[in-house]
Design a protein around this nucleic acid. Structure first.
Lengths: 396, 396
DNA sequence: CCAACTTTCTCCACTCAGTGGACAAAGAGG
DNA sequence: CCTCTTTGTCCACTGAGTGGAGAAAGTTGG
């Protein structure tokens, strides 16, 4: 249960830790190729990292035509905790220092029950992972919440869908409980970090991640770093107007994107279509399950239901309308679509693409991939682990 | 005519040059307070800068209760050229190394005449400034063009309103003519740099500058640096849809912001109002001047013409609609409105503010100033000088 | 006008990061 | 067994940067 507390002593060590994290076990020689240091200096820094215990020897590599090199790797006993609090469920995962998921639990939950209840659940899920022998303690934890965060303090600020959390010291509280450093961020930003680390955005520097779940939000990455805005609310695109004089939104305005397309809106529209007789397929499912979700709409569409398909297309159109504006403005190198509704798959993607390619400037869309996220439900927890790892693997 | 070619040899020297540029003449002691170096090291670097000629001694400062300090300042003979090519006019200015404007000329012009003709005009304007004794030669030049630029190469790329310029090697050509380093950027980005250096955005790190001139564009500053996007077209908001099923735009879509509000659109709408009898005031001005511009609409509104006021309000509403979306997405710390139509003044500003404060999230607008630019027509040339100065005053 | 105190600037010995070359160790291939 | 290649270690040297001592040039008050 004694955990590493060492931190890299300088920028070189930080860089080496990041290389070992992202590239796995490696020899001094190959590290030297990536790090612009003399062999002597490199050896000194690696030796110091070995002394701290952050890095351990890992046997001999195969020969490349000469003396075999001594591999080093991040200490395999290091453990990070990744927590992704959504609107209606929690994900908790344990990773090693290379951010590989060793164990992962998902449970339904309602954020509106407030921080105390949710924290209790997170801790019990963590205990379960611990009990299965994956970790004795944690060297760091990252946690995502579905709303804006004052990032330096790790405190949610004025979150619309989780009012009870306003000002709750998430970072402080979790750090107390776990006895390790904690970083807090918006769930969408974590998803962006996840896709950047292990997903579709590995090679891009400027990109957007649009997460369509219960709500809708956007992660912004500029020059490889997450951009959070002046008050931490950057990317909050759910209340951009998508349909003038459209549906009444909970925020008080009309026609917000979130009022027209999101997990919640889609479920509502599907139920309406089922009840007023437009779709027998959806009506059947409503009766069978006692409720409808985005997954039902996806299934109905796959079964050939025209109304379900229309709902998806119409939603994609609204979303594409907003994304088109963002693309003109931000000129990203990639747009990733993720979140719960990715189950709607290529029907949704096609509708979004059509709209964006039609409305944005040719120069901005000329070579712009719009793709689905690769990591699915693990994007958030991987991003959370990445967040704390970036923090710990930076000069103290 | 022999010019300085020295560049700072390291990051410390670069920092010192920037401090002297932004803060004016200063003593070693006061520089030391801002630069986190020991006095000894600081003295060494300042001496080296004196040797290069970039910096010169500037007499003794007043005593602050002890020995008087020896001031240093940027060499007052350094000269930068700032060029701002708009759609319908060119600005050329000469500055010293502290980016103070020593001379400034503005002339009407039409970019569509192509790069060769425009270059000729720029060079003759430059010659005129030179002839007046302001400069013998230039140590660097910055130039802005009204369209996207591939920044590293300094070449316009697929510019909609200046088709003849596509691929024209602006940087190379101007550098040849002037015999000094040149940097090229989008005119709106330069305006942002100008307002950041000497205008309303001096203390903000993340902000937007919306320039409403013949066209409409947006400069994006992230963490103090201009963000240009993946292909250099970031901030191109003129073709974001502001009015669904609205006016036909030259780009092929309907309802683009630029089709509804910009210098050109406003002139068009004013002429319509004058011709179909809605506004006697505008009709008088049309007859008197043989044409209408944004300035006429401003004057008519000031004279109490309700139709002119309506045009401004309606334009502000469309613009505010788009800006509201950008504010939700980007969460800036400041929005600056600039460009030719700033003559419309507070009527325009009020309309934009109303729309943004109503539509964007409270967290994003809570403490968001929306203001007019401070520098007017000099923002571009100051930004241009700043651009090349940032380049030259950075480690070689 | 002098004594005491402040501020600025210079000088110098010292520390420490980083380099690059010499050389040893370990393997591949003939 | 010899040569060539790759890897790792050792060490003298360079050069950036520090911090303290002390000189230079002021101010203020008696």
């Amino acid at each position: 249960m004694r955990r590493m507390t060492a931190r890299p002593a300088n920028a070189h060590q930080a860089r080496l830790l990041q290389l070992l994290r992202d590239g796995g076990p490696n020899s001094r020689a190959q590290l030297g190729d990536q790090v612009d240091l003399s062999r002597s200096k490199l050896a000194v820094e690696v030796d110091r990292l070995l002394e701290t215990g952050l890095v351990v020897a890992d046997g001999l590599a195969a020969s490349r035509g000469g003396r075999r090199s001594h591999n080093v790797r991040l200490n395999p006993e290091l453990r990070f905790l990744g927590v992704d609090i959504g609107a209606t469920s929690v994900d908790v995962a344990v990773t090693n220092a290379e951010l590989e998921i060793l164990g992962h639990i998902n449970q339904p939950m309602d954020v509106r029950e407030g921080p105390v209840a949710v924290f209790e659940q997170v801790l019990s899920m963590t205990a379960k992972l611990r009990a299965s022998g994956l970790a004795e303690g944690f060297d760091g934890a990252g946690i995502g919440v579905p709303g804006p965060v004052r990032f330096p303090e790790g405190v949610p600020v004025a979150p619309p869908i989780m009012p009870g959390w306003d000002g709750f010291p998430v970072r402080e509280a979790l750090s107390q409980e776990l006895g390790c450093p904690v970083m807090v961020d918006n769930d969408v930003n974590l998803m962006a970090l996840g896709e950047q680390h292990a997903g579709v955005a590995r090679t891009v520097h400027d990109f957007l991640v649009v997460k369509i779940g219960t709500g809708i939000g956007c992660g912004i990455v500029v020059g490889g770093d997450v951009y959070r805005g002046t008050t931490g609310s950057a990317g909050d695109i759910g209340h951009i107007q998508a349909v003038p004089e459209g549906r009444q939104c909970a925020c008080g305005n009309r026609g917000c994107l979130e009022a027209h397309f999101s997990g919640a809106a889609l479920a509502r529209d599907a139920a309406e279509a089922a009840e007023d007789g437009r779709s027998a397929e959806l009506a059947n499912r409503l009766e069978a399950n006692g409720g409808l979700s985005a997954a039902d709409v996806a299934a109905a569409a796959a079964a050939g239901d025209a109304t379900a398909l229309d709902l998806i297309r119409e939603g994609g159109r609204s979303t594409g309308q907003v994304i088109a504006g963002l693309v003109s403005f931000f000129n990203p190198g990639l747009v990733v679509i993720g979140g719960g509704v990715t189950g709607l798959g290529h029907n949704l993607l096609a509708a979004i693409r059509t709209q964006v390619y039609r409305q944005s400037l040719p120069l901005a869309t000329g070579n712009l991939p719009i793709v689905l996220g690769e990591l699915g439900p693990t994007a958030g927890v991987i991003g959370a682990a990445r967040l704390i790892s970036d923090h710990l693997f930076s000069p103290a």
